[in-house]
Design a binder for these strands. Structure first.
Length: 204
DNA sequence: CCATTAATTTCAT
DNA sequence: ATGAAATTAATGG
């Protein structure tokens, strides 16, 4: 299945509409919960996580994005503040385009609009699948849902060779599980043959 | 080598 | 089966 990395707009096009590069340090926030959505953000270099904290302070990660991926763009179309935080996992360079310029850009480039619809659709589709698996009591079911979701961001369809580049703690925070449960479940899945563990790396 | 961070194991519930 | 705490491994200066 062809994957659409949501959303990757040509950097020179972004710049021609007034986008600027901004450098962030590890752990720095690009935006926080309740902030107004003022920009379109696209990662040029680095990694960003989208997260929340529950009432006990336990973190839930919605997604982790890398190079050439955008985030939070849905909020530009709504009169809503961000429901999540965007935090850099490493030193990053992020391109940001002010909201008004962003709309001017897609007005002048209808193809982008179409492409963005495809991205949103893909997002919604896999979010639904995520919710389904997260609703399961079974830890293995949850993990499989996440792995499918992560793989949907990947281009080639290769069996047992997609490297999950997340720590076990991050996986735990993406699935609402504890890290020990993640470790135990991964081992079970390896025994069952659905994944391969090669020096601590996860291949799916 | 020391400090930091991640992975795994142990142990109690 | 699960999670907190302890232990071990790896990574980065």
């Amino acid at each position: 299945m062809k994957t659409i990395s949501c959303m990757n707009i040509d950097e020179s096009l972004l710049h021609s509409f007034g986008a600027e590069d901004k450098d962030y340090k590890k752990r720095e926030a690009v935006f926080r919960e309740e902030d107004h959505a003022l920009y379109y953000f696209q990662i040029s270099e680095g990694k960003v996580k989208l997260n929340n904290y529950n009432e006990n302070g336990k973190e839930f990660i919605h997604n982790i994005l890398g190079k050439k991926q955008s985030f939070g763009e849905a909020m530009l179309f709504l009169n809503q503040n961000y429901p999540i935080n965007a935090i850099c996992l490493e030193d990053s360079r992020i391109i940001r385009l002010p909201k008004n310029n962003f709309f001017e850009m897609i007005k002048q480039n209808p193809d982008l609009s179409l492409e963005m619809n495809a991205c949103f659709s893909q997002e919604i589709f896999y979010k639904l699948k995520m919710v389904q698996s997260l609703a399961s009591e079974n830890p293995m079911q949850r993990l499989k849902g996440l792995l499918e979701y992560l793989k949907s961001y990947h281009d080639e369809d290769c069996q047992k060779c997609f490297h999950i580049e997340f720590t076990r703690q991050q996986i735990a925070n993406l699935t609402g599980m504890r890290v020990e449960t993640v470790i135990r479940t991964l081992k079970k899945m390896e025994k069952e043959g659905s994944i391969i563990l090669k020096d601590r790396k996860i291949l799916y």
